[in-house]
């Protein structure tokens, strides 16, 4: 018999913790953000989602967002996130994949 002892190559990780936001009790009357990162097709998904939400919750208002930085994909900066958080009650997002 032979024993081969080796060291673990996997690094420990820095742990982050974020508490999820409280969910809405209803979508009726709220303002929803529709966030698109500009990857192809994501806008079409949000178009249809907006239409469906409007059918089911006629009082819902919508605001459209894209990130302020990026290229193929546009991302939200901290300032973007602050602004969105101040303007809407919830967000539906698509990154297209």
């Amino acid at each position: 018999m032979a024993r081969l002892e080796v060291l673990n190559p996997v690094a420990k990780t820095v742990e982050h913790s974020v508490k999820p936001a409280a969910r809405l009790t209803t979508l009726q009357g709220v303002t929803l953000g529709l966030y698109w990162n500009m990857k192809a097709g994501g806008d079409a998904a949000l178009d249809r989602t907006e239409a469906l939400l409007h059918e089911k919750f006629p009082q819902v208002k919508f605001r459209r967002y894209i990130g302020s930085v990026g290229w193929l994909m546009r991302h939200c900066t901290a300032e973007d996130a602050d602004r969105i958080a101040s303007e809407v009650d919830a967000v539906v997002g698509t990154t297209a994949d």
Binding site: A21, A22, A45, D82, I84
Partner: peptide, 8 residues
Amino acid sequence: RGVPTVLF
């Protein structure tokens, strides 16, 4: 920031 989200 307290905003509930859902992602496709």
